[in-house]
């Protein structure tokens, strides 16, 4: 564990907590894409399949449970909780996110480190996570203005993988044989997709107004 990865995990944790705070306290998911949340639930479900077979550390297992629990409960809230579901912008959240799943699965079947069931699904989760934010970014452009909490959520979610990139650079220089092109490229693509959001975020958010 290094400071970059810890910062990345804490940023990721903060993003799900901000979203849960918004949904649970003010019972609103305005501006939040259910489709992105569904994709993230699939990402964690396919990435953490080894949660019961391979134990890394208490921290690792605890965080996996937090991300699994939070992503599925956010989907449940947005789909089935009456008050929250009412604030879901169904008409605007129309990105065909299932069209992202199949290409990621095919790509994982073609490009992976090991051709095993767990490894292919794990690689699939990396590819899917890289594009999972697309429905949310499209919704963001349609709804123009979003509230601060949603803006913070997207910022933290984009930032965590950026910190992971620093972690990979650090581990590359400090650990022999630490080379994982698939993880690195997927993480880079994921972070680059946030580029224009970060641009507007810093322009607007730091200026004290909402994100437009």
């Amino acid at each position: 564990m290094n400071i970059f990865r810890l910062a990345g995990d804490m940023t990721h944790l903060a993003s799900v907590l901000v979203l849960l705070l918004k949904i649970h306290t003010i019972k609103s998911c305005a501006g939040v894409s259910l489709r992105t949340q569904e994709l993230y639930a699939i990402v964690f479900a396919t990435r953490y399949l080894d949660i019961f077979t391979s134990f890394v550390s208490v921290y690792n297992t605890f965080m996996k449970l937090v991300f699994l629990g939070s992503s599925f409960s956010i989907v449940w809230y947005m789909r089935y909780h009456k008050a929250v579901h009412r604030t879901y912008d169904r008409e605007q959240d129309t990105f065909r996110h299932w069209f992202l799943v199949l290409p990621c699965l095919v790509l994982a079947l073609l490009i992976h480190e090991k051709f095993t069931f767990l490894e292919v699904l794990w690689t699939f989760s990396l590819y899917l996570e890289a594009v999972a934010i697309l429905p949310q970014l499209v919704l963001l452009q349609r709804t123009r203005n979003i509230d601060n909490l949603t803006g913070q959520y997207i910022f933290l979610l984009g930032g965590y993988r950026g910190l992971y990139i620093l972690n990979w650079i650090y581990r590359y220089f400090t650990e022999p044989h630490f080379v994982h092109w698939i993880t690195w490229i997927a993480g880079l693509v994921q972070t680059l997709l946030y580029a224009d959001f970060f641009y507007y975020y810093f322009l607007r958010f730091i200026g004290g107004r909402g994100v437009e």
């Binding site: 990721h12 690792n60 794990w122 972690n167």
Partner: peptide, 10 residues
């Protein structure tokens, strides 16, 4: 092995 190393990340 090196693959286990990868799996120590979230």
């Amino acid at each position: 092995s090196k693959n286990d190393v990868t799996k120590d990340e979230l």
